[in-house]
Design a protein around this nucleic acid. Sequence first.
DNA 1: AGGAACTTAGAATAAATGTTCCCACCACTG
DNA 2: CAGTGGTGGGAACATTTATTCTAAGTTCCT
Lengths: 281, 281
Amino acid sequence: MEPDTDAPTSFTALQAAIAQRQNSLSPRLRQIAEYALSNPNDMALETVAQIAERAGVQPSALIRFSKTLGFDGFTEMQRVFRTRLTDNMPNYKERIRALTDGGPALSDASRVLEHFIDAGINALEHLRQELTATDLDRALDLLEGAEHIYVMGQRRSFPVAAYLGYALGRLGRRTVLLDGLGGMLRQQVQAITDRDLLVAISFKPYSEDTVEICRMAADNGVPVLGITDGTLSPIMPLAGVTLAVEDAQVKGFRSLTATMCMAVSLIVGLGQRLDKDKAGR
Amino acid sequence: MEPDTDAPTSFTALQAAIAQRQNSLSPRLRQIAEYALSNPNDMALETVAQIAERAGVQPSALIRFSKTLGFDGFTEMQRVFRTRLTDNMPNYKERIRALTDGGPALSDASRVLEHFIDAGINALEHLRQELTATDLDRALDLLEGAEHIYVMGQRRSFPVAAYLGYALGRLGRRTVLLDGLGGMLRQQVQAITDRDLLVAISFKPYSEDTVEICRMAADNGVPVLGITDGTLSPIMPLAGVTLAVEDAQVKGFRSLTATMCMAVSLIVGLGQRLDKDKAGR
DNA sequence: AGGAACTTAGAATAAATGTTCCCACCACTG
DNA sequence: CAGTGGTGGGAACATTTATTCTAAGTTCCT
């Protein structure tokens, strides 16, 4: 009797094994693989019959799946899924303790991640409190009413601008991402009219280009939607509507967590409005 | 026949119930109570026979114990022990889905924001639990050791790629953002050697370009760091190291909150390493 | 010391669960 | 078109598992 040399013993190994073989699996087994990865709790606790029903599969398929992965049977595979529950359980408390006590149990990298996660959660809670519904609505008014939307963000703010540019385009809005490619920035800005909208994203230290573009736009009567930090931003006086975000910050490094969250919310909020308008028309 | 009105339904309630009756229990049942409180994992996952043997008790005693607490049988009591595992190790997708499906059609903009904030916090907690320190360290090893770093992300993943490209450059790493500008994508990829690194960011629905570039790189022996979602991503089998992120999702719209948080953590973690190396030299 | 009430052990039982097996089905090949 | 290799469905099977039951044991009171 040969042993199952390739049967994973840890959950992460199992996860990797499933992911790796996904292409070589038959359709039904892939269906199980998908269910298993997204419902590991069920895999660990429910019975074969239950899992089979929820995944829309025959019980025997689950045994086939287990054997394909090198296990003796379903029971043996389920044991691995159960280790995930027991292994991660005490870790949770330990990790928090390690974080607060500054214990050496964690590597530097994961401690950084812990900090950013905590800071990110704080930033999101802060965002919830600080951002008023009226500001959001006014921002959406601008986005909805504009003929063309120009989005500008430099350096660290560029990813946000890129996301907004992409997502606004997908919503069917005429959108231009002012990326300054080929030094065409000022020419692009010349084309903006007062029926358009400039979305300017900038955080401290504020990009001079972005501030200048904002000023040009404001001088020409172009509406400006500013996404910036609340404290004394040069964008604020130039923008008709300002959305203030104080994003997470650890050791001087600013995260984009909360800003991205707000950007996505803007997009979805706008999408809903457009849907509603289309339906009401 | 009256129902079991006093059967605890939550683990904490069960814990309290056991502790309270500890004195009024018979010796053997108290023995079980002691074992149950100190080995809740076994109580949740093992069979009656196993638990009985480990606790030095007869199987039937466990059933009597359960009935004393007001349960119908051992199985029913075990269910409560199992809730402890699932409650502390929740399936985030379910939670996030419950958050969205449960809520009434998010009418106004601020409710959208609320949802994304909640979903974002959940995603960050998820990230905290699922991302292991070893994965993170291995990712940093790759980033630190590479001569050149190529970053690729399309569509919704592009903002993440843009951020990484920008931040890696600021850390002094030679970085190329594969933006496909002017259709030069494949030419750019030709230049990558096995001493470089490809960072590929892709989420469902996976960009065909990104997957293909990954495959090309993997075929040429180029190390690949994948940033993708955990469920059956085509990136995973191609990448040497994978960082799995399940980002927040509301009404089918995926946020970038958690992904960005992880990206920033990577950057700062790498920055720390580089500082340390410089100081130690 | 003897009996009543309660507790326990262990085999017997019934239910459920995992697993096997066989046939039908589909896609591909000669 | 028949053959072949792989895949899936579902019923039959064997095993495990929870539960019940009865007799023996223990404790405690009078």
